[in-house]
Design a protein around this nucleic acid. Structure first.
Lengths: 204, 204
DNA sequence: GAGTATACTTAACGACGTTAAGTTAGATTT
DNA sequence: AAATCTAACTTAACGTCGTTAAGTATACTC
């Protein structure tokens, strides 16, 4: 059995190597500027080798992005664990979300802005694509739920409020990513303002 | 001189024909699923002919999207002209913005979500790309300014507020476009909620 | 040592955006 | 009316892309 194990380990290593190369190129160049050929060249393998490890470019890029987005989920966990007031949790989580997007714009584009989606989304694509975005959303939702339970915010439907909140943080994130050279009043200030106004509106 | 005029008119006609074909394909298939070859085939010309009328695919698609986005600007004008209360103007403009995005998702992706932008944005690209997005924003800004002047909303910096508002409507629009199959609580309801909460927060 | 599975490569397909080098038809000139 | 020029359009090609099919060599099994 040790032979099979070694083989499996070696396969896993190359898979990791591909992921590493893809991650680096991808974070630097973005989805449409990374080709399978470039990734292959970076690790000194033939382009077709990658297909032995990943179904297609989409799956590879999504794996990379999912990995990255998992870090955001972890951050959410940390916030929930260390911050007591749910309103503060909400604020902190929102800030973390936006900062995550600005730190990893190319990952954000794939995960939350549909980059790399060509044709109509088939079922499995939808599943894997939605999963990470959906998981992030669910974290926000949990926090919102707590806020409502503790009567910190107006008790409209939790889902509606959560989705509205997601839309808000997504809006500022994606706008800043899409128009980096727009004369923003100041990114930090704007982010704070958007989140504050939203939370203020939810309290009222 | 009449010869030159006729020629110019004929050129204009073909240009319009290209734009028509591009618009139709583009609205139906989206940026990355429309090729110069397909557009050319649709109008029975060789692919290279298009390059006599448009610098590249980017310029062609942007022309199409600018045309469409101009309609939104006109709608804004109509709202400002017919609605008296600036807060109502704000609400109506926000709704029009979101509905515009949902009605023309592929145009919205190019204009407001950076679709079709490959390399780093050179100066003229930035200019033409930003122009329509920026013009829409300026309309919102004017309305916000009026709200502040009439003390309808809290008098923080007009730019900050306008940008925050843009982020909000963009957020809900782009999320709905990107995740059409997400279990939203109901698009109309959600849109209303997002805009209402934002305006509520601005009043406080 | 023969046979077989595994890991990888070479070669190719069809598509893409785009450019350079024709071609052709019409207008201008002589 | 013939020669020239010019504008509009096409053909052919380049280099790229994602992806598949067929081939090869290595390492393990028996």
């Amino acid at each position: 059995m040790t032979v099979k194990e070694r083989r499996a380990r070696e396969k896993e290593e190359l898979r990791a190597e591909i992921l590493d190369a893809a991650r680096e190129l991808f974070a630097k160049e973005g989805y449409e500027n990374v080709s399978m050929r470039k990734i292959a060249e970076k690790i000194d393998y033939s382009p077709t080798t990658i297909y032995l490890y990943f179904k297609d470019k989409d799956e590879l890029c999504r794996s990379v992005c999912d990995e990255t987005t998992a870090k955001l989920v972890k951050q959410f966990d940390g916030i929930v664990a260390t911050v007591s007031d749910p309103i503060d949790q909400l604020r902190r989580a929102g800030q973390a979300y936006v900062e995550f997007g600005l730190s990893h714009p190319n990952h954000y584009k794939v995960t939350f802005m549909g980059y790399g989606l060509t044709g109509p989304v088939d079922q499995e694509k939808l599943h894997s694509q939605a999963s990470m975005g959906a998981r992030c959303f669910m974290h926000l939702r949990t926090i919102v739920e707590k806020c409502v339970q503790q009567r910190k915010i107006r008790a409209v439907d939790v889902d509606t409020t959560s989705q509205a909140l997601w839309a808000t943080v997504h809006g500022i994130t994606s706008l800043l990513i899409t128009y980096p050279d727009f004369p923003w009043v100041g990114k930090e200030r704007l982010i704070e303002q958007v989140i504050d106004v939203m939370i203020e509106g939810l309290k009222a």
